[in-house]
């Protein structure tokens, strides 16, 4: 294959990754934005979403689409409920102290991960995609009789991958609508702006916190359900989404949702393209260094405008 089609293929893979990453990172960003805490267990909520999707798909049976749709609904709800429960039993009791929250969510990370290992086991298991037609992509070439389309061998994607991109866009729009147009979004923004004042105006801040924590985790779980037909469900799969979400959230500006989405698309696309040319380990070294240096020298993020 020539370079052109190769890059097109890499950008489609990158766009799928960017879509999933944007969902996961927006969950993390929402929690940080409203609650001012960093949730280290976010990657485990992602993993839990994938594992629950596998369980649901197994239980429902029948056509893969039925199991998948059921998983799409059940997994985020269950994970959100678990997260909200964790918020009310643990985070509320330590008064959302930023440093102690990190330690507690590290504990939560190990608890979720190891309980999954004990029940689900160490195997990676696939979930069947609801539909998976191969779509050959055309490419233009200047041939003998002028500009012509043709289908290079290997340049193809699947309908499911395109669905993931569209689904993520729909959900992200939904999150944006929720934050700007609905009453619960208003309560969240009020709590984000000044939680003491919100409380004084009778907003049930504790319930808002539990809900935000649940929605954040639910978004990660939703992203995992979308990706699990492409990759597989495994109890250690939470580490990479956590690292990447961190990178996205920090580069996009902590707590800024539009910045997070822009950064996710940028990182997802460039990761797809970079890892075609460089080793993934080198990409990870550069990415972690970048996050560290951005936090040191530009704590408001590369695109952030909020004062540090």
């Amino acid at each position: 294959m020539e370079l052109g089609p190769y890059i097109l293929l890499a950008s489609i893979e990158g766009a799928v990754m960017a879509a999933v990453l944007a969902l996961t990172a927006v969950g993390l960003s929402l929690v940080f934005g409203v609650m001012r805490v960093v949730n280290i267990a976010h990657g485990e909520f992602f993993m839990l979403g994938a594992v629950i999707a596998w369980y649901v798909a197994q239980t429902v049976g029948g056509h893969p689409a039925i199991g998948f749709v059921a998983a799409l609904v059940i997994a985020p709800l269950v994970v959100g409920a678990i997260a909200a429960a964790a918020d009310m039993t643990i985070l509320k009791r330590i008064a959302y102290d930023p440093e102690r929250t990190i330690v507690a969510t590290i504990g939560l990370l190990y608890i979720i991960q190891q309980l999954t290992l004990m029940t689900y086991g160490p195997d990676a298991r696939p979930v069947e995609a609801p539909f998976n037609q191969r779509i050959a992509l055309p490419w233009v070439e200047w041939g003998e009789d002028g500009l012509s389309f043709f289908h290079p061998w290997g340049l193809a994607t699947t309908s499911y991958k395109l669905f993931v991109i569209v689904a993520a866009a729909v959900v992200l729009t939904g999150v944006r609508m929720m934050m700007t147009r609905t009453r619960i979004g208003l309560l969240m923004r009020a709590t984000q702006a000044d939680s003491d004042m919100a409380l004084a105006f009778g907003i049930p801040v504790e319930r808002v916190y539990a809900m935000v924590f649940g929605i954040g985790a639910g978004l990660a779980a939703l992203a995992a359900v979308l990706i699990v037909p492409i990759s597989q469900a495994h109890y250690l799969m939470g580490a990479d989404p956590l690292l990447l979400s961190f990178i996205v959230v920090i580069i996009g500006g902590l707590g800024s949702l539009p910045g997070t989405v822009v950064a996710a698309v940028l990182i997802g696309l460039s990761d797809g393209i970079i890892s075609v040319f460089f080793s993934p380990t080198l990409a990870k070294i550069l990415a972690t260094l970048l996050v560290g240096l951005v936090l040191v020298f530009r704590p408001q993020g590369l695109f952030g405008t909020r004062a540090p």
């Binding site: 643990i90 009791r93 330590i94 102690r100 330690v103 507690a104 590290i106 504990g107 939560l108 990370l109 190990y110 608890i111 979720i112 991960q113 190891q114 309980l115 290992l117 004990m118």
Partner: peptide, 20 residues
């Protein structure tokens, strides 16, 4: 159990909650 890091997680959470 092979999932021995579970203990580490539980201890971390319990310590943050009850005995910082």
């Amino acid at each position: 159990t092979t999932a021995y890091m579970l203990i580490a997680g539980v201890v971390l959470v319990v310590l943050t909650l009850f005995a910082p």
